[in-house]
Design a protein around this nucleic acid. Structure first.
Lengths: 194, 194
DNA sequence: GTCTATAGTCTGATAGAC
DNA sequence: GTCTATCAGACTATAGAC
């Protein structure tokens, strides 16, 4: 049960309004059915839909980020640009903010589980490529991969938000390259890429 | 009406659970009063409490950021470290994510107003010091102040979130200096400060 | 797989006493 | 300024027909 079609609709609404702000009615409207019909696809109701949506989104991010890194060039910069592009191309709004809004509301143990899953799916893949680059001797000045990955994800999401606000009209690939350059080279730098 | 004490309680709960996830009961519990009593302080009910909390928080951020910049040294780096420190010392959780959770839920015109207020209070003060530094010839490689301010706010918030997750135990001032260094110098750089 | 009908609960809000 | 009592509406969820 709970076909991809139903989860797509649920994800769209949950991402836009958060868990508490979403009514079953909203999801049903997107599908063109009645709220009661949702219980055929997800007997556990609203909470089951949420859990499935979050789990699927995090898995997608983990796989997408890993694949993006693998398909990219050999340098940290190439890998990060590829990952940032993938993130920027992702569905409207960021999964992290979505999950964070729920973390405050959900029971403590469930919140912790969500936070852990987010960490594993978003931070770890980035920290991994960063750590590998460190071992290759590429990245030096920021010792902690976790610090970098946290800032990276936040920066890309912030960039996406700023972009959608309309104040920065330009292409997605350019944006990815620009934010990566900002993090790798810094704003004071004038050096050429690598 | 709506004393600071009441707004403090409301802000604490709203910041933690978001607008939709907050019940008047929760705010009343913090104050040790009954939900109905809240209507004496805010006749407009939940929505009025929210509006006052958001307006006050944004004003506080605008003033706090401006003051932090003024009290800091003459360089962009000093100003940004001061601003980052102030942001990191702010109440639990970030105002941006809070507002964003509401933007998806609120009516379109109100959402636009909230977004505009957030932009004016968070992005503009940072973009201002960045622009001034550009005119002094300090910052070069990122042409758009809006791009930088968006990434800056997001990075600091992401840093705060990562910090609270417990994986990076260290002092707040160090964190501020580190994230500013990351943005100004980049991770590949090994140069000394400016 | 979707529907109607409805139960049960929660929540925002109002009225009026103290 | 806070209370009790209460209403009206909205929401999740269930039961059972089609």
């Amino acid at each position: 049960m709970a076909s991809a079609h139903v989860l797509d609709a649920a994800e769209r609404v949950f991402l836009e309004r958060g868990y508490a702000g979403t009514r079953l009615r909203d999801i049903a409207d997107v599908l063109g059915i009645r709220p009661a019909s949702l219980y055929h696809h997800a007997p556990g109701g609203k909470r089951e839909l949420w859990d499935r949506v979050v789990a699927r989104a995090f898995d997608r991010h983990r796989d997408g980020l890993r694949t993006a890194a693998e398909q990219a060039g050999p340098t940290l910069r190439d890998e990060l640009v590829s990952m940032a592009s993938w993130l920027l191309a992702q569905p409207p709004v960021n999964v992290a903010a979505l999950a964070a809004s729920d973390i405050g509301a959900a029971p403590k143990d469930e919140a912790h589980e969500t936070a852990e899953r987010m960490y594993q799916s978003l931070m770890v893949p980035i920290a991994d490529v960063y750590r590998a680059a460190q071992e290759r001797g590429e990245a030096l000045s920021v010792p902690h991969p976790d610090l970098f990955s946290g800032v990276f994800v936040a920066a890309v999401n912030g960039l996406a938000a700023t972009e959608r606000a309309g104040s920065l009209p330009r292409a997605a690939n350019d944006l990815a390259a620009e934010v990566v350059s900002l993090l790798l080279d810094g704003v004071l730098s004038q050096r050429e890429g690598n």
